[in-house]
Every structure is written in structure tokens, then in C-alpha cells.
């Protein structure tokens, strides 16, 4: 090694041994050896000057009390906590029920008479078939459950959805089901305010 140690190498040399070629260079180069020695001495001086005077033993209790008072004066309280979490809890509860419903939903089995019509209908018309009769009852049940389930219950049951699962479940909903979801969410958010 013929060139002088770079700044980075000098800083690294404060913390770990020099490589063999660096050491050979420093042994022969008074400038690098002097720079490194001065830096090591300064670091030792800084370390020695770092002692923090211990405050009085009463200081820690007073500091805790000051922090408590300052924190109690913060506006993050009733409206903050409740206002922030309650709508989210309601949303999580509703989404958990919806995902459960999407997973458990039976595939549509139109009656024999309806099969030709269903086969010739376009996709959106076919999906609307799923909202009739039995599905209506299912959505009634979902609506009832969604008003009563809390986020803690859903979490304890392992039903809190991940983001990907939520996106996938919403993607799989028909237009009619999405309208119902919007109604449910609006109702829940209105109830939380």
C-alpha cells in the first residue's frame, strides 16, 4: 500500500485493527501514524469528558411527575383514543364477518328451469342471481352479526383480515354485494360517531 489512509480507513482504524498492508504503510508513514494517534487521543479525551453529573435522588421522582403532568395535559385523550379506535374497530368487525361470509358462501346452484337463462345471461346478471332468496337471508345474517361483533371477538376468533385478504374479498364481491358493504360501513361509522 503506497497511498495514505483515507478518512474512512482512519475512522475504521479507530475501531478495528488495520489490515496488514495498512499497518505496513502506517509503520513507514509519519503523517498517517500522527493523524491516527491524534484521532485516538481525541476519542479518549471525548470519552473521558462524557461523565454526566448525577442529579439529586429526588430529581427522578420530580421528572416523572413533570412528565405525567405534561402528558395529562395532552389533548390525546377521550376524543383521541375513542375517536380513532372505535370506527376502526367497527370496520374491522364488519370486514371480518364479510370475509367469513365470502369464504363460506355456497356456490350458486340455479334451479334446472333457470339454468338455460343463467347460461345465456351475461356475467353481471349471473352474479346478481346470487343475491336472491338464500343470499338475502345470508346477508340479513351478516348484517345482524356485523352489528354485534367487536374487533376483540373477531381477533380472538382469528378472523381479523390481512390487507391482501381484505382486498381479495372485496374484489370477489358483486356490485350488489358491494352496495350492501357500503351500506353496512356507513351504518357502522354512523353508529361510532
Amino acid at each position: 500500500m503506497t497511498s495514505h489512509l483515507s478518512r474512512r480507513q482512519l475512522v475504521d482504524a479507530l475501531e478495528r485493527p488495520l489490515s496488514l498492508d495498512q499497518q505496513v504503510h502506517v509503520d513507514r508513514c509519519a503523517a498517517c501514524a500522527g493523524e491516527l494517534a491524534a484521532m485516538r487521543a481525541l476519542v479518549a479525551d471525548v470519552a473521558a469528558a462524557g461523565e454526566v453529573p448525577e442529579p439529586s435522588p429526588l430529581f427522578w421522582d420530580r421528572l416523572s411527575a413533570r412528565v405525567r403532568e405534561a402528558v395529562d395535559a395532552e389533548p390525546v385523550s377521550a376524543s383521541g383514543w375513542a375517536g380513532y379506535w372505535r370506527p376502526l374497530a367497527a370496520l374491522a368487525g364488519v370486514l371480518a364477518v364479510l370475509i367469513l361470509a365470502a369464504v363460506l358462501r355456497p356456490s350458486p346452484t340455479p334451479s334446472p328451469a333457470a339454468r338455460p337463462a343463467a347460461a345465456s345471461a351475461n356475467a353481471s346478471a349471473a352474479s346478481d342471481v346470487t343475491t336472491s332468496e338464500g343470499s338475502e337471508a345470508m346477508w340479513d345474517m351478516i348484517g345482524t352479526m356485523a352489528t354485534s361483533i367487536g374487533v376483540d371477538d373477531a381477533r380472538d376468533a382469528g378472523l381479523v383480515p390481512g390487507r391482501a385478504a381484505t382486498d381479495a374479498a372485496i374484489e370477489s364481491l358483486t356490485q350488489a354485494q358491494r352496495r350492501e358493504l357500503v351500506k353496512l360501513l356507513r351504518a357502522e361509522l354512523g353508529a361510532s360517531d
Partner: peptide
Amino acid sequence: RFLGNHEDASDLTQDVFVRAF
């Protein structure tokens, strides 16, 4: 160690915990 005096250090410690809160 940043401020070098007790009074500012205790004020700032309070600020740090309020921010943390």
C-alpha cells in the same frame, strides 16, 4: 450530552417523553 447542562437536559427529557406518548 447533547446540551451540556442540567436544566435544558431535564426540559428536553420531558419533551422526549411527551413526543413518545
